[in-house]
Design a protein around this nucleic acid. Structure first.
Lengths: 121, 121
DNA sequence: CAGAATCCCTGCGGATACTG
DNA sequence: CAGTATCCGCAGGGATTCTG
């Protein structure tokens, strides 16, 4: 059996416990919500981006979702926030090394998805 | 810029259109729901599995969710369904090559998640 | 400029019961 | 054994308004 090193712990009711035990579910918890990948993607494209520019670049996202997603990504260590204490305020976001480390994996997922899209079309 | 080959199309309101254009969102659409990965995981571990055994192996899943998830995975081409026309019925599920092709990517995600879990703990 | 507060709604998934 | 049928609750996310 290939990939026999993967462990996939599951508890009786799929609570957070197993999400904190299974690295795949853990990862999906971090990047799986609606706006996380678009945000990571644009931060990757533009290196360092201000709040409002990010908002413009991701059509449809609201302040709430953008702020919430950025905070969660920051807490998970994928995104760095740098606030300049000026008036008006200026806040820049960028990918950390942790965030950058995710990109090759996303690339893998991209290639798999691309192949499937062609097949299913 | 690395990974410059990744395209990430987004439309104005994040509808299905962009989910059908972006391979990453497309992939997440297929494997991102609550029970998809556990199902894929156990099918990988046990090769060919009957409906009720799958249900026993995935604690907490209901018939509805198991059937629904299997149908979607089947439609996406990741899972094969083989029904024996006997009484009582016997239905076996297994991973297709498409499903197997996803495992290396999941392994990548696993390693990334594992690293993050250690850091954030 | 970069958010926070408030209210609201849809739809994913859960619970229970039933069947060819 | 392998599912359907029904009903229901909640949380993720939307729309709008406001502010240091």
């Amino acid at each position: 059996m290939k990939n026999a090193t993967i462990q996939y712990p599951i508890d009786s009711n799929m609570t957070n416990i197993n999400k904190q035990e299974c690295p795949i579910l853990y990862a999906l918890q971090i990047i799986g919500q609606k706006w996380k990948l678009p945000i990571l993607w644009y931060l990757h494209e533009q290196q360092t981006t201000r709040y409002n520019e990010l908002k413009r670049r991701i059509p449809g996202i609201t302040n709430i979702m953008l702020t919430k997603s950025l905070r969660e990504l920051e807490e998970a260590g994928l995104v760095a926030r740098h606030a300049y204490e000026t008036i008006p305020p200026k806040v820049e976001y960028s990918l950390t090394d942790v965030g950058l480390n995710l990109l090759p994996t996303l690339n893998e997922l991209y290639k798999w998805g691309e192949t499937q899209m062609k097949k299913n079309k």
